[in-house]
Structures are given as structure tokens and as C-alpha cells.
Design a protein around this nucleic acid. Sequence first.
DNA 1: ACAAGTTGTTCCGCGAAGCGCAACGGAGGG
DNA 2: CCCTCCGTTGCGCTTCGCGGAACAACTTGT
Lengths: 262, 262
Amino acid sequence: MSNSTESTGAREPASVQSVDRAITILELLARGEMGVTEIAAELGVHKSTASRLVYTLQARQLVEQHGERGRFSIGIGMLRFAGAVAGQLDIVQIGNPVCEELAERLGETVNVAVLDSANAINVSQALGTSAVAAQNWIGQRTPSYATASGKALLAYTPPGELDELLAGELVSYTARTITDPQELGEVLKRVAEDGYATSFEELEPGLHAIAVPVFGAGQDVIAAISASGPAYRLSKKRIPEVVEELRQGARDLSDRMAYAGR
Amino acid sequence: MSNSTESTGAREPASVQSVDRAITILELLARGEMGVTEIAAELGVHKSTASRLVYTLQARQLVEQHGERGRFSIGIGMLRFAGAVAGQLDIVQIGNPVCEELAERLGETVNVAVLDSANAINVSQALGTSAVAAQNWIGQRTPSYATASGKALLAYTPPGELDELLAGELVSYTARTITDPQELGEVLKRVAEDGYATSFEELEPGLHAIAVPVFGAGQDVIAAISASGPAYRLSKKRIPEVVEELRQGARDLSDRMAYAGR
DNA sequence: ACAAGTTGTTCCGCGAAGCGCAACGGAGGG
DNA sequence: CCCTCCGTTGCGCTTCGCGGAACAACTTGT
């Protein structure tokens, strides 16, 4: 949240202050509407400063003002960039229809995720049929060791890199989160053997997820597909069924990616 | 592109310079990879300035560096915002599956667009089956009077607002672009009667498009669905067939939006 | 193979640009 | 109808960010 100016410490090449603040504003607004005063308080700056930053973002359509003098929220202009990043990562576009189909077939929320250093990032999503308005996970950075997708991705990473990647990262989110490096290693080995990974309440209480890897042209893993839902519905019993469906989707996605040329 | 500092003229409340530049960088990178020097030249600033701006964006994952010292491109962090804006505009999420289905049925690229002042902005997209790697239109701001979607949206706007909206906007893109306000008025009236709009090479030579409006809860138009493709394939003859499919999709989308609660 | 041309990054001093302050004007709410 | 809270706008001071130049790591040309 409010990470103010860190004057001393590590020698980071120094960021441009106002740009950094502007990005923070965008991240705040990504979570919901806010007023200028609220933003200023969160940033730890004066109202006027926040106002001008917001104005700049608004002039470029990155934020929108709801009334003439109302609150602010993320703007449509952001979609332009969204389209660009989606265009660069073919998997985003190609993953969407696959997600849709799986979501309909399983009735659960389905995501495609890729690995970015220690985090798994969801790049595509399709909501399940359940009426419960599920959370939007797109773009979310989730700790790889605590999610099904993450573990599916990590399982095929060389152990050497792995230790480096997760050094000092193993924070506990629930009672079931794996925090012991050695235990994690064993679990990942098992994942590689079985060809699927699970996360049963390791990230959030009551949240279950099952994931399988998506292979690229060679033997490398380029993504993971996961199904997630409430614990009472996505039980252990359903693993074989769900894994089977996910595998089919993963194969489908692999093929489409190969066809697309990458 | 390079809009430098305009010292004189209208009294705009003044933007924060570095933030404005940073956004320009993002827009540049949205079109493809670039190097720092290239960016600096485009912005009209010194390399060092560009380097620091890019570093700031990179630290927040909004841009990525391809090698250790390579070129830059839009980063995955952008997806976080994309998810946020998609969450706020329900139509983005709901529109996607509708696009997919229509695209498969028609074999052409299908888009959902909304109106933003004088521009039509594509918010959802599904590519057609044709092997031709079509352009990514998501987030694109297109001149409403020259696109099928745009005209479908404008046709239900009160004439008063319309004149104000398009004052001095009617630029010509091709020989067929409508640049006469009176002619546009007549065309739009026709669109409202027929219930569909076309753009045959009015935006780009060789590009045809057909669109229908999407109605909200009342009689208001909240979006438009369009099919677009090369002139030789999406000919006038196909209008009845395509319009019929699009109408069905629009009704579907309307229903789903109503069901979703907005 | 070396040199000359790139590239992107870092250090530093000056100046403008952006910040905080305070006053303004409108919108609700009591 | 006053009082409070909101977002916006001049204004002056200081800081922050810019430009210049030197640097280091690659690529190219001969």
C-alpha cells in the first residue's frame, strides 16, 4: 500500500518520483473508485499534488471522472495497453476460448497463468456458471508456491533456479501454505510425476484449485491452466475428472499455440 | 505523434510533465518494441531522461526489458489494470463469449465497441477463422463517423449533442469517408431506420464492416457489435445474413447484461 | 583482430518543474 | 441557511528531474 519515499538503503538507480506516484494512483484506482483527498492521504502527499497527477492521467484517458466533480476510476484508455500486451503474448488471446470452453464444461472458474520470477500471473480467465460473482483474477500476481497454477509451473523448473527464485519468499497465507523449502521440493517432484498440481486452501481459506501444465513446442512449460472454486464444491473426489478435462484443454492450447507460429 | 509542450493557447490546468511523457512512452511501446534512444528521439528528450522514465516503468512491471540490455516492450503488469477496467465495464467480460461465438459462426473478426466522446472504442474482440493474422483492435480509438460500430452508436444520439460531438472532427481517411455533416446526418437517420450500419472502405481501403446496436435496459444504446473483414469477402451481398447473425448476438448480449444486473 | 560505431546506464550541477500552502467555489447535510 | 467537506487553482520556494558528458558493454566494419 503506502510505500513512501525510501531515502536511504539499497542503491536503486532512482525512479522518477511523479511517475512512480502516478502508477501508484492507478493501482489504487484499480481496486475501486476513489476521491482526490483519499488518494492524497494514501500517497502521503498534498491534495493539490494528487489533483494534478490525476488530471494528467485523466487527460490521457487512463482515469475517468464520474461526475463533473465526482470520484475517479480507471479509464477506458487503459484498454489500449491491455490490447497491446495481449497481442504480444499470443497465449492471452489463444487462451481465452479454451478457458471459456473448459469453464462451461466444468462449471468452475478457469484461468491460464504464466510464470514471472516468483509469481504466477493469470493472463486469461473465464468465469464458471455458478451465480457467485467470482473475483477477477486477470493480471493478479499470485505467489507461485501457494497456488495450483504456480506449482504446475514451478515443477518443471531446474532445482537450481528454483532455490534462487524462492529465496526468502515462502510466506504463509493460511495454515496449509507450504513454507518449508524441502517439503516444497518434494511436492513439486510429485507434481512433475503426476502431471497436475493442487492448492487446497493454501492461498485462501475455502478456496481450492487444480492445475495442469501447458507445454510449448519443445518440452518446456509455457503456462498452466487451472480450475478454481469453493472447497465444498471442488473436492478431492473430483480431481480425476477435473484433471482429465484440464489436460484436454492444455493439449488443445498447446496445439493452437503451435499452429499460431510460436 | 511528438506533441511537445504547447506553451501558449488554451489554459489547460497544466499536466505533470514527466507523467505525461511516461504515458507517451507506454503508447509508443504499445505499438511494438523500442530502444531507449529511439524513444528519446520520439519524445524529443535526452537519452538519460528516457532511460530513467523507462526504468521507473520497468520497476513497476509496466514495461519489460528483453535482454539484459536489450529493447523494451509493454510488460505483463499492465494486465492488472486491464483486469480492473474489464471488471468495471461489465460489457467487456460479457461481450467476449458473444464475440467468440459470432466470430466462429461468421468466420470474420467480431468486435464490441462503446462510444467515448467522438470515438468508438473496441472493448472486446474475437478473431475470425481466416488464417490472415488480423490486426488487434482492442482498445483502439476509432473515429466514430468512419466506422460501422461508430455509426451504429451515433445513430441513436440526439442531433444536438451530435453536432457538438463531431465539430471539426470530420477528417477524411479514404475517398469514401463521409466528411459532410449533412450527409452524415442523413446516413445516420437511415441507420436508425434500418437497425444496422456499414462502413465500406470509409476508414481503410479494402476494409469492410457491418454493425448493429446493442440496447441496454431501456431504449438507450450501450454498445455496438461489428463484423469486419476484407472487402472481397465481406461484400454487400452478405449484409442480410451478417446483420441477422449480429442482431441475434446483440440480443444475446443485451440479455446477459440485464441478467448481470446493469 | 582491433577500432569505430552502436547501445543503455550512471554521475553531477543547474534550473525549471512540481510540490505544499492557502484561498476559492461548489455541493451536500444538518 | 450556515457549516463542512470536496476538488480545483494561483503562487512562491525548494526539490526533483532534466541535459550534458563520461562510461561500459555489444555489434559492426574492414
